[in-house]
Amino acid sequence: MQGVVKVNSALNMRSGPGSNYGVIGTLRNNDKVEIIKEVDGWYEIRFNGKVGYASKSYITIVN
């Protein structure tokens, strides 16, 4: 499943599904990501070869 990031500035990509996990990357508005699965309001995603987590509130699913 594919998604597009929708933010005003930047979205942190984290090592786990929560804001208490470390930041491993930064996503920008309109970045395209691969959604692997949903975990407690977060998406596990793949972006630029990295796998991490981002809040699903800021990612819109596209077909």
Rank of each mutant, 00 (worst) to 15 (best):
M1S: 15
M1I: 13
M1F: 12
Q2H: 14
Q2M: 14
G3K: 02
G3N: 02
V4R: 10
V4Y: 04
V4A: 07
V4L: 10
V4S: 07
V5T: 04
V5F: 00
V5A: 04
V5L: 03
V5S: 02
V5P: 02
V5Q: 01
K6H: 10
K6C: 06
K6R: 08
K6S: 12
V7G: 13
V7R: 06
N8F: 09
S9E: 13
S9P: 07
S9I: 10
S9W: 11
L11E: 09
L11V: 12
L11Y: 07
L11G: 05
L11R: 06
N12E: 09
N12F: 12
M13R: 00
M13Y: 06
R14D: 01
R14F: 14
R14K: 07
R14E: 02
S15R: 07
S15I: 15
S15E: 11
S15F: 06
S15W: 06
S15N: 12
S15Y: 07
G16H: 03
G16Y: 02
G16W: 02
G16C: 03
P17C: 02
P17A: 05
P17E: 01
P17Y: 01
P17S: 03
P17G: 02
G18T: 02
G18Q: 02
S19I: 14
S19G: 11
N20L: 08
N20D: 15
N20A: 13
N20W: 13
Y21G: 03
G22W: 07
G22K: 11
G22M: 11
G22C: 06
G22Y: 10
V23M: 06
V23A: 07
V23Y: 05
I24G: 02
I24Q: 04
I24E: 05
G25E: 11
G25D: 14
G25A: 13
G25K: 07
G25S: 10
G25Q: 11
T26N: 08
L27R: 01
L27P: 01
L27G: 01
R28E: 14
R28A: 12
N29Q: 09
N29G: 08
N29M: 09
N29A: 08
D31Q: 07
D31F: 05
D31H: 05
K32V: 15
K32D: 08
K32T: 15
V33I: 09
V33E: 00
I35D: 00
I36C: 04
K37P: 00
K37C: 05
E38Q: 08
E38Y: 06
E38R: 04
V39W: 10
V39G: 04
V39D: 06
D40W: 06
D40P: 07
D40R: 07
D40T: 10
D40Y: 08
D40M: 09
G41K: 08
G41P: 06
G41I: 09
G41E: 11
Y43C: 04
Y43N: 01
I45C: 04
I45F: 07
I45M: 06
I45K: 00
I45H: 00
R46N: 15
R46L: 15
R46Y: 15
F47H: 14
F47M: 07
F47G: 05
F47E: 03
N48T: 09
N48M: 14
N48I: 07
G49R: 09
G49Q: 13
G49I: 05
G49W: 06
G49E: 13
K50Q: 15
V51R: 07
V51P: 06
V51D: 09
G52Y: 03
G52I: 01
G52T: 02
G52M: 03
Y53F: 13
Y53V: 00
Y53W: 13
A54F: 04
A54N: 00
A54M: 07
S55W: 10
S55H: 13
S55P: 08
S55N: 15
S55D: 15
S55E: 15
K56Q: 10
K56C: 05
K56M: 11
K56E: 05
S57H: 11
S57M: 12
S57G: 08
S57W: 10
S57L: 13
Y58C: 04
Y58R: 06
Y58S: 13
Y58K: 07
Y58L: 08
I59Q: 00
I59R: 00
I59Y: 01
T60S: 15
T60M: 14
T60G: 10
T60V: 12
I61W: 04
I61C: 04
I61F: 07
V62I: 10
V62E: 11
V62M: 11
V62G: 09
V62Q: 11
N63V: 13
